[in-house]
Amino acid sequence: MVHALNEIRRVLIPDGILIDIRPLMDRWQVEVTSMREIRQTGRVQDFPVGLADDEAANRAIVQASENGWFSRDRQEFFSYSYSWDTPAEMEEWIDTEWEDFVALEEETKQATRSAWALGDADARVRLQVKMLIARWNVLKDR
């Protein structure tokens, strides 16, 4: 990762910027939503590999900063939501696409299924992913 950041620095102009945008493991919130209400039904379970990936990425960008390659200019956090028609669709997605990183505990599955079944006709299931976006200024001699 650190080598990649040095490569990116090489191909950027002296006034160039690097945008780092990525999800952060943070026990993402599970919700059942409709036009009328939002019901929080639990959080996903983070697996160690995802947490380790976040730590490795953070270490790499800190190392690049300490090496004098980039200077952080601005950082923000925001939510990126995924939503599905049914709890079953969300469960299938997590089991097939994110099985290495997160899981749903049985209690959260049951709470989500119940809230959805008892919810409004337009009820959907939503996952709120925590996102980081940071702008780094490249540092190099002109």
Binding site: A4, I8, V11, I21, A60
Partner: peptide
């Protein structure tokens, strides 16, 4: 291409975006 070996000359770009990839 892999980010560790970018097939571009130096100072080719104004902006680099790490898209969910760091």
């Amino acid at each position: 291409a892999a980010s560790e070996y970018l097939p571009f000359s130096k100072e080719t770009f104004d902006i680099a975006v790490l898209a969910w990839s760091l």
